[in-house]
């Protein structure tokens, strides 16, 4: 069966994750690294996953790819790629999906490529693994891909080794690798974090360009709200292995519902307007380790608006407005929006 991408008649999302829980075993104890996570990505959509380090963003990406470390296990839930459940697939079928229907680019382009293999061959290998084309067709396709990711000319040759390329060029090679077999889903795990600001902008432009030309859906993992604002259509905010807010990028930036989201936004939007010598706004405290995630709302210990009710009861995702969900007992009232006034709740909590 060939994946035909947009030809699906039913508007089946490219990726649908439902109620996914993953546990990590360490020193004989197992802890939930992802707890009841749900999300979906439609055709050609860019969904950003945002959160501080240790929130489970990368774990989610690796769970989708089936590349989690040996001590991690999916305990519950489903991951469906183009309508096909993949958590129960054999290792062999999973391999035939990886790189073909979904692919991934990583944070460190400096080390993500094999240092001893010419970059052209690293791209060609994807095609060889999935038996796409004969040798000369594959060569032609590699040249095409390099042109597509902006690597033609300027002294670049596909016979070069990774160490002969700059960080930005290597990330472009990685993107060429990821796109080679025309996957429906591209997972980008902090793809620009290790790059200079100007190179970062170029890579983001390239990803946007790929989406609009090829219709590739992109799951974009980052801790950087600024990057989210530039690329994402929808945003999933994660905290301590849970999804705490889902919204379109406009809604999220205009009316964050979860205090954690507001904190993340506060630490970037205010950064430019901090008076000289003033402290940058931050979220006090740190992300709890897997062993110490509280029973109630995971964010409660760091939340400025915490109530007694939050300590013992875990909030579920609830709709604030169409397409905007937050997991908070007392979501932030949006400015000038009487619909989501949470004052009555907070009275009740006291």
């Amino acid at each position: 069966m060939r994946p035909v991408g947009q030809a699906n008649v039913v508007a089946e999302p490219v990726l649908r994750i439902e109620d996914l829980s993953v546990c990590v075993e360490r020193d004989g104890r197992s802890n939930l690294a992802l707890s009841s996570v749900s999300l979906s990505i439609s055709n050609g959509e860019i969904v950003g996953i945002v959160g501080e380090s240790g929130c489970g963003k990368t774990m989610m990406a690796l769970a989708i790819m089936g590349l989690m470390a040996e001590n991690c296990r999916t305990v519950h839930g489903s991951i469906a790629l183009q309508g096909l459940e993949i958590t129960s697939l054999s290792a062999r079928s999973m391999r035939s999906f990886r790189g073909r229907r979904m692919s991934m680019i990583f944070q460190e382009p400096m080390v993500a490529l094999n240092p001893l293999m010419r970059v052209g061959r690293q791209v060609e290998e994807v095609l060889a693994i999935h038996h796409i084309g004969n040798r000369s067709e594959r060569r032609r396709r590699v040249r095409e891909l390099f042109a597509q990711v902006g690597l033609s000319g300027s002294g670049f040759r596909s016979r070069q080794y990774p160490h002969e390329l700059s960080g930005g060029m290597r990330q472009r090679v990685m993107i060429a690798v990821a796109l080679a077999a025309e996957p429906a889903l591209l997972i980008a795990d902090e793809p620009t974090t290790a790059l200079d600001a100007t190179v970062q902008a170029q890579i983001l432009d390239l990803l946007l360009d790929i989406r609009s030309r090829l219709g590739t859906s992109i799951l974009f993992v980052t801790h950087d709200m600024g990057v989210i604002a530039e690329v994402a259509d929808r945003v999933v905010v994660m905290y301590a292995g849970q999804v705490v807010e889902v919204a379109s990028v406009q809604d999220l930036f205009a009316r964050p519902g979860h205090p954690y989201t507001a904190g993340l936004l506060g630490s970037i939007t205010a950064a430019s307007s901090v008076p000289e010598g003033g402290d940058l706004p931050t979220i006090a405290g740190r992300v709890p380790s897997l062993e110490e995630i509280p029973l109630g709302c995971a964010f409660a210990p760091r939340c400025a608006k915490v109530q007694a009710h939050c300590i013992d009861n875990r909030p579920q995702l609830a709709t604030l407005e169409t397409g905007h969900l937050a997991a908070c007992w007392f979501p932030l009232p949006s400015v000038g929006d009487p619909r989501t006034s949470a004052t009555s709740h907070s009275e009740g909590g006291k």
């Binding site: 790819m65 391999r95 990886r98 990583f106 080390v111 994807v126 693994i129 990821a178």
Partner: peptide, 10 residues
Amino acid sequence: EYVRTAKAKG
């Protein structure tokens, strides 16, 4: 990391 990349290729 390059091993992870190779696995991600399938």
